[in-house]
Amino acid sequence: MVQQYEFKTKGLPYLLVLPQMVIVFVFFFWPSLQGLWQSFFLQDPFGGRLLFVGLDNYTRLFTDPSYGYGESFRISIAFAAAVTLLAMSIALFLATQANKKIRFASFYKTMMIWPYAVATMVAGVLWLFMFNPNVGVIAWFLKHRLGIEWQHLLNTGQAFLLVTLAASWKQISYNFVFFLAGLQSVPNDLIEAAAIDGAGPARRFWKIVFPLLSPTTFYLLVMNLVYGFFETFPIIHQVTAGGPGKSTSILVYKVWRDGVINLDLGGSSAQSVILMVMVMALTVVQFRFIERRVHY
């Protein structure tokens, strides 16, 4: 490799990275280390006396059924999987439709893309309002036309369904943007060649387009799982508050609730550490994959 030209000024680069590094250390590393440290202690919420308890906070998470951590794990996985599956399959289907040479294609694309700007929290409010048992338009329709009593604050299945729908609704446009970009880069001559060889539309999609989309699909799979696990806090907080009971209390909601509301700092910190390990695993998987892709 040719030696790249680089500036040789001594102090300047340090000055340039300084703001970034200060913020990284003050707001990322320092709190993360404190969280790790905190997770080995029990602190009484009023006096702040620390009591070293070793790994107790962790073992409690996994052995004490009343803590509900395993249950929260199970709910999070079901929720993230449901959102990922729903949001990705709908977005892929719509992207293939919008990618056809049809009239109004650019209008359709704009209409599909802009909901990316809707805040996750607002998505929660929109769905909450439609399904509010007292004033919701859809709740009313379900009750008076279909005979289904909608009570997501009492019915665990309905609560889960509602947060899943709201979270997926919000994520479709994100997936749509990526699938559309992926579809546009599939070479047309490949598809035409297959058509000449007698492959029908379905076969062309599954045998040619879908495999060529696999980098996009994989990237979105990771991003959607991350979204489902970590970024859906606003929907849970706004729509169900983790309830009824703890039936929609996903991991990030539980960290917040145990820390901020129940003031169980040790337990909340131990949960934070576990979540950090999960994000790390997902990030490593993603980058491993992207590195591999570069050598195509």
Binding site: P31, G35, E231, V279
Partner: peptide, 9 residues
């Protein structure tokens, strides 16, 4: 290290 996983600290 998204905020969601290091709320309290």
């Amino acid at each position: 290290l998204p905020v969601e996983v290091r709320i309290m600290p």
